[in-house]
Design a binder for these strands. Sequence first.
DNA 1: AAGTTCCGAAACTAAAAAGTATCGTTAATC
DNA 2: GATTAACGATACTTTTTAGTTTCGGAACTT
Lengths: 229, 229
Amino acid sequence: MKRDDLMRVKSGHTAENPVRGRKRDPGLDAAILGAVIEVVAELGYDSMTMDMVALRAKTGKAAVYRRWKSKANLIVDAVAYLKSTQVDSDSLPDTGTLRGDLLGLFKPSTAREGERNLRVMAGLASVLSLHPELAEAGNAAIVEPWAKVNRRLMERAVARGEVHAKADIDTACQVLPSMAAYRALIQRKPFERQFLISVIDGVLMPALGIDPAKTPTETIPPKKDQVLR
Amino acid sequence: MKRDDLMRVKSGHTAENPVRGRKRDPGLDAAILGAVIEVVAELGYDSMTMDMVALRAKTGKAAVYRRWKSKANLIVDAVAYLKSTQVDSDSLPDTGTLRGDLLGLFKPSTAREGERNLRVMAGLASVLSLHPELAEAGNAAIVEPWAKVNRRLMERAVARGEVHAKADIDTACQVLPSMAAYRALIQRKPFERQFLISVIDGVLMPALGIDPAKTPTETIPPKKDQVLR
DNA sequence: AAGTTCCGAAACTAAAAAGTATCGTTAATC
DNA sequence: GATTAACGATACTTTTTAGTTTCGGAACTT
């Protein structure tokens, strides 16, 4: 296959055997992968054309096919790339209460990013059943990180004695991601702060045995629409 | 049904002006719509070809296009048809406890149907953003009925005094559908009974202030994998 | 300077699938 | 019996798009 040569060159950058001609623009890889994510979030995988991707990345199709041998390969790498661009979980909120931490997760930027990621996942839906590897990549990039953050916040709450140890954290940490995804993808409603508060106060807190009324007053200010600004 | 009027107008069938030639096979409409649902569940909307639909319905493309003017129109009616085939909510389980009722919802047949419906919804994902009407139809056919059943079971539990009246039923009744959808569509894991039990006992029951240990022993038999057979 | 490879743009090829038309046959009305 | 329309099958047209090729020019190595 002709492509083998290209792929070998792509991975054959070594000191002993330097490339002969012009080097590939390193920034172009990310530009293309980013364009793929954009378009998939907007239109879904099937409606994403290679011309569109090249146009968004401000390059030509040739540059794309020089790097990936097919659309299928491209999307797999794009999802992996998406994972690599996620914000580190270093910046976890730490308000002292689980309720405050959970609310703190949904800063506008985080919420927007999460919603975009879910749209990407929805756009992949049609190919997931045919490409198990892609389903796995999507899960690792989009789904797991979210549940993991929830889990860590809840584990901290257990460690601090706010939640009793026998609570079912494994299940509880999936509630918020699940309901957010359901609302965004299936019900197609915007993810508003009020909904988040309903889930936290109406389901999660009681499920974990925390009485919302007992939390410090600072976390429940009088004006509802100004909660935790 | 609304469809009858639609078809009559479409083909000019009226009581005063009976049709001249051979009549349309009435069963064929359902056969085609059923075939659409099947294929969408398996491959998704984009991979569904009109030839495939005709083949499954054991007819020709001409018969399909005689009834629907485009693939887009066909899918809208197919989702509406799906709604009409849903089992009535008359046969709600009534075991005396909310826990038993919720478990009773997931008879093998119901669970299979629910999973199929979710796959249909996933197969539609790529077109939902472009066709808001379809999103609405899908919500009405697949999502709402499920949450509605949950709500009714929980309202009965409140009426019976099992759950205190100030519980947030509006939010709680969405937990199970959401988490089932998330698991089926995004995580792509099978919907096992064990997961259902985790959600009920780990989240829903405590969230509604019901102590699982207090429920009648019959509903919690010793052998886990034989719960409520 | 020579040779090689990448760049972006565009033209091109090939396959898939939506939608249309045709045909011989069958079921209905007049 | 004649007419009309639906039936299933199949061939056809047209559009879209994945993937390839070509081109002039730019960047890099020797």
